[in-house]
Simulated scan of single mutants.
Amino acid sequence: MKDSRYFTPAELAKLFGISKQLLLYYDKNDIFSPEFVDENGYRFYVLSQYFTLQIIISLRKLDVSLKEIKAYLKSKDINLLKDIYRNKQQEYKKQIEELLYLEKTMQQKISFLNDIQNLPLNQILLELQEEEHLYFSEDISFQTPIKHRMNILAKHMLPVFSHPSFQEYLMGFHYDSNEFFYEGLITQYNVFISANSKLHYNNPIKKTKEKGLY
């Protein structure tokens, strides 16, 4: 059917640079359906639907959910649209805070590397450090197969990597000082983590390094 009052799916999709499959997806999910389907199954959109699709595309670019879009299109309530925008605004604020935190962390890392690079090797240095919480793994015997030892290490690191946001952490190995200074006598060790926020462990071995000069 050739009628200047209607768009075919291909024509409408071309206007927005989207696929016909996306229009079909919106139709199947009762978001945006053609005005009518003829006896041969051809689908047609009226000219006014261009503006409705424009709203959908714009909201999707803001990552608004299809459920929220569907509710707004059904009611056309301006207060509901304002709520949608407010919710997205709060999400963006949170993302900005997280990005600023990451930017600050990266600068700290760069400064730390600069300090190491410029560290004099013929001097004893004292530095004021904040209180630090250290999380220790279970004892790991050197007699344990390497694969099992790696499993223990990975399990201990998991709370850092599974945290929803980037976590600054320090990982190290702890040896018994009495064994360390006698060659061949080290029998076991622990993995420890020092992180910039509380980590969730079941029955953690936790120690606190007091604030002071080190």
Rank of each mutant, 00 (worst) to 15 (best):
K67G: 06
Q89W: 02
S65V: 04
I124F: 07
Q123M: 10
Q123C: 09
Q129Y: 02
Q54P: 00
D83H: 12
Y135E: 04
I110G: 01
N122Q: 08
V64F: 03
I110H: 00
Q108A: 12
L100D: 14
E91M: 08
I55K: 10
N87V: 07
R60H: 02
Y72S: 01
S75G: 00
L134H: 06
L121I: 11
L113A: 01
I84Q: 10
L134I: 07
L73E: 05
I116F: 05
N79P: 08
E103T: 08
Q108V: 00
I55V: 15
E132S: 15
Y135P: 01
Y135R: 05
E91G: 06
L53C: 10
I78P: 02
E68Q: 13
I116Y: 09
E132M: 10
K76L: 06
A71R: 15
K88P: 02
L99H: 03
A71P: 01
D83T: 15
L80V: 07
L126D: 00
K104V: 00
K88R: 15
D63M: 10
K93Q: 14
N118Q: 15
Q117D: 12
I69G: 12
L53V: 04
L73T: 01
K82D: 08
Q107T: 09
E130M: 09
Q123E: 14
K109N: 04
N114Q: 13
L121C: 06
T52R: 10
F136H: 12
